[in-house]
């Protein structure tokens, strides 16, 4: 029981982190139709910028400054790169972000080297806030939860209560109509792209100390973010939240429980082969849940797309 509680907390941390990435991506995608492959690269940039700032000014200025810099960089890339490509269609846009992801990874390696950098949580948060059984919960984790929830509430407020939010929501569903109503859609695009990448940058700032700051961090998280928004339904903020938490808890639970395939197969009525060493299905028999935990979201995505192409909360196909 204790372990379940701990897993719920750990899963929440990971899920909310995913949400910060996927909320920006889903906004960008549903509005501009761009599958932004470089989204996780902005997450990486956030972590590296914050690391650089933290070396001179400490952690807290980095928490504010790094996402802003990332957001500005994102807006600039939209303005001078993506907008140019936009006229050619969606596939070139995708290739552009693909190339951008490669480029950002190389640039990061060029300036910060290829090794993991020592980007750490601030000293004030480096203690165990409480323990459940033998498991300590670090204060920094609670801080991560707090920041993510705060961001979610802000987003929700902006999108539902402000005029800008209304326009964005309208543009999510009917981009053409919004343009026809005289709104400067390219400017909104740039703004949304900037805010989306800033969110990714913020996720990087707070995740860097926890999950490590190294050049491969973008690739590691890259495709799972797509999986999240597709499961949640493109363009749905609530969908992104639900899918993020679902994936967070699913992978955490899968990693925590050693459910073995052999037990399941035997329970179903198969007989365990005596000599396993040369059996053709030996790998299936020895399979355990933690081995496949990180690929479960992909399985879930394929199943959902086959039966419900719009995702859990989506209303329209892209």
């Amino acid at each position: 029981m204790e372990l379940v509680l701990v897993i719920l907390i750990d899963g929440l941390v990971y899920g909310l982190l995913l949400f910060m990435l996927s909320s920006g991506l889903t906004l960008i995608f549903s509005m501009m139709g761009v599958l932004n492959f470089a989204h996780a690269s902005f997450y990486m940039l956030g972590a590296y910028f914050a690391y650089q700032i933290s070396r001179y000014m400490g952690f807290w200025p980095g928490l504010i400054l790094a996402p802003i810099i990332v957001g500005l960089a994102g807006a600039a890339i939209e303005r001078f790169g993506l907008r140019k490509v936009h006229q050619y269609g969606h596939v070139p846009e995708l290739i552009f972000t693909f190339g951008l992801a490669l480029l950002i990874e190389e640039i990061v390696q060029f300036f910060w080297g290829k090794n993991q950098v020592p980007y750490d949580a601030p000293e004030v948060l480096q203690f165990a806030l409480f323990s459940i059984g033998t498991n300590e919960i670090q204060a920094y984790k609670v801080f991560m939860i707090a920041i993510s929830v705060l961001i979610f509430l802000c987003l929700l407020y902006v999108l539902t209560k402000t005029r800008v939010g209304m326009i964005i929501q309208a543009a999510l569903s009917y981009p053409r109509t919004v343009e026809a109503l005289g709104h400067n859609v390219p400017f909104i695009f740039m703004g949304v792209f900037g805010v989306g990448t800033a969110l990714a940058g913020l996720a990087g700032v707070i995740a860097g100390p926890q999950l490590g700051t190294f050049p491969g961090m973008a690739f590691l998280l890259g495709s799972i973010v797509f999986v999240t928004i597709v499961i949640g339904g493109l363009g749905s903020l609530w969908g992104a939240l639900v899918a993020s938490l679902l994936i967070g808890w699913m992978t955490t639970f899968a990693a925590s429980y050693n459910i073995a395939m052999a037990d399941i197969l035997m329970a179903v009525g198969f007989e365990m082969p005596e000599d396993m060493s040369e059996h053709a299905l030996r790998d299936i028999w020895s399979l355990t849940l933690p081995q496949i935990g990180p690929i479960l979201p992909y399985l879930l995505m394929v199943v959902i797309l086959v039966f419900r192409p719009y995702g859990l909360f989506g209303k329209r196909d892209a």
Binding site: D10, V13, Y14, Q210, L211, G216, L220, L221, I224, T251, T252, A255, N258, T288, P290, Q291, I292, G293, P294, I295
Partner: peptide, 10 residues
């Protein structure tokens, strides 16, 4: 136990 190589985020 074994975990997938290079795929675990957390």
């Amino acid at each position: 136990e074994l975990h997938p190589i290079g795929k675990v985020k957390d």
